[in-house]
């Protein structure tokens, strides 16, 4: 991937920013600027919408033959996640003791991670991965 394209895609890669159609209230990730349901009626009515970052695994696989730059992480889990807003995306699931632990129904949340880098001297690409949702956010009484 080129540096300019990555830079343009920062909002949705870094912040999980999608769009919302204010005509029908549907949410889209990655962002769409025309709602496929409302079509012409949605033109100019699409707003930026930040996803909450929590979701559920709907399908998963364990990668043994890695993409370039992911050799250190083999074997790793790649999953289709359904965000709580209803959109689906394909992502790596990190921070698991065993990638086979990533199974449909597992709750996950987004995390800011290194995705790739152009060798030892090139740019580092950051973005969103998913990790197990374990902390439900309690506080001591």
């Amino acid at each position: 991937m080129g540096v300019p394209r990555f830079w343009r895609e920062q909002p949705h890669r870094y912040r999980l920013e999608g769009t919302r159609c204010t005509n029908c209230d549907r949410v889209y990730f990655p962002p769409r600027w025309v709602c496929p349901v409302c079509r012409r009626e949605s033109v100019g009515k699409m707003e930026r919408h930040k996803m909450d970052g929590t979701g559920t695994v709907v399908a998963s696989t364990v990668v043994h033959d890695p993409a370039p730059g992911f050799e250190d992480q083999v074997p790793y889990a790649v999953a289709i996640i359904e965000l709580d807003e209803g959109c689906r995306l394909t992502t790596q699931v990190s921070d698991v003791a065993d990638p086979h632990d990533v199974v449909p129904g597992m709750r996950v949340k987004s995390a800011f991670r290194r995705i790739q880098s152009d060798g030892a001297s090139g740019v580092i690409y950051y973005g969103t991965k998913f990790v197990p949702l374990v902390e439900q956010g309690s506080t001591p009484s």
Binding site: Q73, A111, F112, R113, R114, I124, Y126
Partner: peptide, 16 residues
Amino acid sequence: PGPDEDVATISVEATR
């Protein structure tokens, strides 16, 4: 840190 973590990712998670 995991292989996909560094000071930038840790900073973002703490700040969020």
